[in-house]
Design a protein around this nucleic acid. Structure first.
Lengths: 196, 196
DNA sequence: GGTTTGGTGGACCGTACGGTCAATAATTGC
DNA sequence: GCAATTATTGACCGTACGGTCCACCAAACC
């Protein structure tokens, strides 16, 4: 055997992910990555490959983590309708609005890179489809529980909810104050998820 | 007097705007701008200043133009409710879905630069507020025409419609096919703008 | 403890970028 | 036609970037 790694791979990926999240892909230099990871350039390359592969790895970490949160959010509430409300409200579920201003790493990356980077586009589609599927499942449950009308297509409703949520994320990125954003989130939730 | 300009300023700005629109700010090099404008580097600098100022100029051209389209769209329909439907459906109002994939230059720029560029953030807020205002005006008209209930706040409704529209733009950027996107747009319009 | 294996880190490299500048060209007023 | 003024061009510059490489080092096995 030989010398073992002196760093925690997951910890480095999380630090790198946060850097990309805050500054975007192009605006993050290798020097930034060296700084936040605490590793040297050589180690970074040896362990993760070049900047692009490192970014994809960080992006995957993000989608895995937030995918986990999403499943938890959708299954933890006693009633599926409440879980769907929480899903729409998620972008404003942060007192200071810091999360709203930071936005969603997947959305940020899609806007920055989807037209030029097939790997990012593929990851975006994968995440989008997975999210639609799990939300649609909750819509179905809400129907079973008698909280949503039976005459709507769960997948179609899920897409509308996802669009609403991402629209809120966009408005958060424009720096809209958190109170106004919260009010809009409530309006959207009320219109798309009527009590009937 | 001296030698006159040999190019049409507006034409150059539009070409530059399209380049930024397709590739984003960071991914557009000065060489790209020279190519699409047909001017030399020096001329570009002499006429418009550096890359950042040129970008702001192109962005302003975009917001002015699409602001004009917006006003036209909202005032041309006989009934304000139809105009609001058209507003929500605007991102999919393109047969091939090319416009949907390209997205909105203002949104693209907000996602790429809002956290690091105060000028872009300010322009985003300005555009966002102007759009909210004109849409809210149409919501008020729809209320006057008896097509929307009186008990909703026009500004709040306008924000929800804008969020829905931008959510559709996001889904278009993930490469979602135009038919599915159109269906989702219809769902959102139906839920947010009931016939009653 | 010697040898082997792989990790580490920073010096180094080529390049492509944004930006500058000086020489030249085109127009106007006299 | 000459002077004055401004547009045009592309060669040129400094720099910061992503990426490579190699000398050194630490653990593991015999």
């Amino acid at each position: 055997m030989a010398r073992p790694r002196q760093f925690d791979e997951e910890q480095v990926i999380r630090a790198v992910r946060d850097q990309f999240w805050d500054a975007g892909y192009a605006a993050t230099s290798l020097e930034d990555l060296v700084r936040v990871s605490g590793l040297g350039k050589g180690s970074l390359y040896g362990a993760f490959g070049d900047k692009h592969r490192l970014f994809l790895r960080a992006l995957r970490e993000y989608t895995d983590t937030s995918g986990g949160y999403l499943r938890e959010m959708l299954t933890s509430a006693p009633r599926a309708l409440d879980a769907l409300r929480a899903f729409v409200m998620a972008p404003v579920n942060d007192p200071g609005g810091a999360a709203a201003r930071r936005g969603c790493l997947m959305a940020n990356s899609t806007y920055e890179l989807a037209t030029s980077d097939p790997d990012v586009l593929a990851e975006a589609r994968r995440t989008y489809e997975a999210t639609t599927a799990v939300v649609a499942e909750s819509v179905g449950r809400a129907q079973d529980e008698g909280d949503l009308p039976r005459d709507v297509d769960p997948v179609e409703t899920a897409r509308a909810l996802l669009a609403a949520q991402q629209g809120l994320v966009f408005m958060g990125r424009t720096g809209l104050d958190i109170d106004t954003l919260t009010a809009t989130a409530r309006t959207l939730a009320a219109k798309l998820l009527p009590d009937a």
